[in-house]
């Protein structure tokens, strides 16, 4: 059977592979090569070694600044989103009236696109700050916390749905046994609920981590990195390096490679965590 399928490579595998080659493989390898080159149009590229990588950090302080901004934002939003989502999930798994309607509503923002989300919160945050005679451009910290609020609004519902599914999978007899033994709410939560949903916690932590780290659309619509690069996240810093200054395309590509390595490290860490968990389980 394998042999007869093999003959049909052109039909089954080729269409997808050609698209993959055009959209991913060629741009990826090409980008990797260009990160070691100096160029403005791709035809005049010549090899310069690690120059772009050095320049990524030395040409101005914005790359390092956006790196730190992104890290801080990601850590804070990962914690707040997961705390909120887990709390909602706990409340929605104990037969509170209207559970289905609440779940439907709280999940909804997840489907709205990043650009639309950014502008919605731009209006609301500006409206609140207007009462104090300021706006979101007055201080980078407004943009920072605006992004945190926005990401919580968008992602808490998604993580909540994952936690609800996990909590509903906890065997009922374990909870009953705990109740008979006289365990109070807190003991049940820390001894039974949290350990049983640990796999979902890992998934949600990594989902929010990568979502936060790679954020671009929301950042663009909410503040566009203003004031003075103060709310510029990594993805936006890379975009601006490519497209807002002539002659910095190589630096932009080097930054993109560093960004890719950082994202890949997070993914490897996740793989490691998931493997460990499966071995101990």
């Amino acid at each position: 059977m394998e042999k007869s399928i093999r003959k049909w490579f052109a039909l089954f595998a080729l269409p997808g592979l050609i698209c993959f080659l055009i959209a991913f493989l060629v741009p990826f390898v090409w980008g990797l090569v260009l990160s070691f080159c100096s160029f403005t149009t791709i035809t005049d590229a010549h090899f310069i070694g690690l120059g772009n990588y050095v320049r990524a950090f030395t040409v101005d302080g914005y790359f390092t600044q956006s790196f730190l901004f992104t890290l801080l934002f990601t850590v804070i939003s990962v914690v707040t989103i997961n705390l909120a989502a887990f709390t909602f999930a706990l409340l929605l798994t104990r037969n509170v009236p209207g559970t289905n309607a609440f779940r439907t509503i709280i999940f909804m923002p997840n489907l709205i696109g990043g650009i639309v989300l950014g502008w919605i919160w731009n209006v609301i945050i500006n409206g609140v700050l207007a009462a104090f005679g300021m706006n979101i451009m007055s201080d980078p910290k407004f943009g920072f916390w605006g992004l945190v609020v926005l990401m919580n609004w968008q992602n808490a519902g998604y993580m909540m749905v994952i936690y609800i599914a996990a909590i509903q999978n906890i065997p009922q007899d374990e909870l009953e046994a705990a109740a008979i033994d006289g365990a109070d709410g807190w003991t049940t939560l820390t001894r039974i609920t949290i350990p049983s949903v640990m796999p979902s916690i890992t998934i949600c932590l990594f989902l929010t981590l990568t979502n936060g780290f790679k954020l671009y659309d929301q950042n663009l619509a909410l503040t566009a990195g203003q004031p003075n690069h103060g709310t510029e996240m990594l993805a936006m810093n890379i975009f601006n390096t490519f497209y807002s200054r002539q002659g910095f395309e190589g630096v932009g590509q080097a930054k993109a490679v560093i960004f890719t390595i950082a994202v890949a490290l997070i993914a490897l860490l996740q793989l490691r965590f998931t493997r460990d968990r499966e071995e101990t389980a």
């Binding site: 595998a13 592979l17 993959f20 055009i22 959209a23 991913f24 493989l25 060629v26 741009p27 990826f28 090409w30 980008g31 260009l34 791709i42 790679k214 671009y216 993805a235 890379i238 975009f239 490519f242 395309e249 932009g252 590509q253 993109a256 490679v257 960004f259 890719t260 994202v263 890949a264 993914a267």
Partner: peptide, 28 residues
């Protein structure tokens, strides 16, 4: 190899390929 390349592509952020991809799309 195809399988591993496809899996690898899942973790690569768009910023890595956006410049070359848009140039290539224009050329093609």
């Amino acid at each position: 190899i195809i399988y591993y390349l496809l899996t690898f592509s899942m973790i690569v952020p768009f910023q890595m390929v956006m410049f070359t991809m848009s140039k290539e799309a224009n050329m093609l």
